[in-house]
Design a protein around this nucleic acid. Structure first.
Lengths: 199, 199
DNA sequence: GCGTCATCGAACCGATAGGTACCATCTAGG
DNA sequence: CCTAGATGGTACCTATCGGTTCGATGACGC
């Protein structure tokens, strides 16, 4: 039965629904781990609809990744905003949020970084690079507000902790990396803002 | 012409040659980015030979990853051994070696982590987890020799820096992460071994 | 020297992938 | 109401992939 009896028939809503459902499936199974056919049946969507909205599987993948990056950055940004004005508290909030993410049963590492490891295509790599850039900007902002003498440097070091914690959480015990990375991050922040003490 | 006129015909040597050449290709193109057919032509090896030695493409992949893990760990271990007895110098040597790696034109991130992101298969994940474990043991050893009160914790934090630097180097500027991660690592080490100063 | 074994090259196979075409059917807007 | 557009379902196409098989040929151990 084409067009089930009580359906909504709103292209934008359809597109958003596909995007949301496809995000989870592609993350869980991997970009090449699920075909368009199965994807469609799981989404409850016909191939024609999917291809009309996204043109190609790569188009869908890119849209999924863009949306995911937006969501992640917004999520971390909210955690920071909810942490008040103290830069150290904001930094701690970032890693607390990460730890919370790591403990989700579906956690499989950073979707963007994973995607770039799978599709060596420039488009995907560009999205991932941009994602890391946004993450970096967030961390650099915290470093700057904390009065670090070189906020860009400290921001990059913090980004390494974020990404490293994510990798370790994905491949080893996911219960501790966020917390332990948080401690490391706070140590780096303290050392940077008290230049007389160390190194 | 089967069996070219001046060839060596030594199974072990053939297997090793396949392994070595396949490692580079699979790393550069991705595990699913190159098929067995092209792999064989590039290797100058027939399909039958490849399948007789490795059984299946997954078998080849696993052998490649195992060998790569061995090589990487040995390489880092040598860098540590060459750095003398000072734990801080050993730690610095690790990140210097990493930085050197990042600057190779063919650098594409950690082959093991990339592989795990591509093949969600348990066998590959296990190899990657073991690889991280070996890396962790190395770092924990340095932490212990430095007199850190909780070498396991510091080791895991250092591992995060290693993996994070690798991710950042793969997706952003590869010229600085090693050096900057090295500085962060030394800061963590100093903070851990001087508990009175911070945190 | 002779048989065994390793190897190449090529043909071949079934499965599956991404993508297209067509049509029946339903909603949405006027 | 009635048309236009969105959708589901299905069949289909072509390319490619992993893997198998076979015969020809040469190296190597005995």
């Amino acid at each position: 039965m084409p067009v089930p009896k009580g359906s909504t028939l709103d292209p934008r809503r359809t597109r958003a629904a596909i995007l949301r459902a496809a995000t989870a499936l592609l993350y869980e199974r991997g970009l090449d781990g699920i075909g368009v056919a199965e994807l469609c049946t799981r989404l409850g969507v016909s191939k024609e609809t999917l291809y009309r909205h996204f043109g190609t599987k790569d188009g869908l993948v890119e849209a999924v990744l863009e949306a995911r990056s937006d969501r992640v950055i917004a999520w971390v940004g909210q955690a920071v905003a909810a942490a008040g004005d103290d830069p150290a508290a904001q930094l701690a909030a970032v890693f607390d949020a990460l730890q919370q993410w790591y403990e989700e049963p579906a956690f499989r590492g950073c979707a963007l970084v994973n995607a770039a490891a799978q599709h060596h295509v420039p488009a995907v790599r560009a999205i991932t690079t941009r994602h890391l850039g946004r993450h970096l900007a967030l961390l650099t902002g915290i470093a700057a507000r904390a009065g670090a003498p070189d906020p860009d440097l400290l921001g990059r070091q913090l980004l390494m902790l974020v990404e490293g914690a994510t990798v370790v959480a994905a491949h080893r015990d996911p219960r501790v990396p966020g917390t332990e990375a948080r401690a490391a991050a706070l140590t780096l922040l303290a050392a940077a803002t008290r230049p007389g003490d160390l190194a």
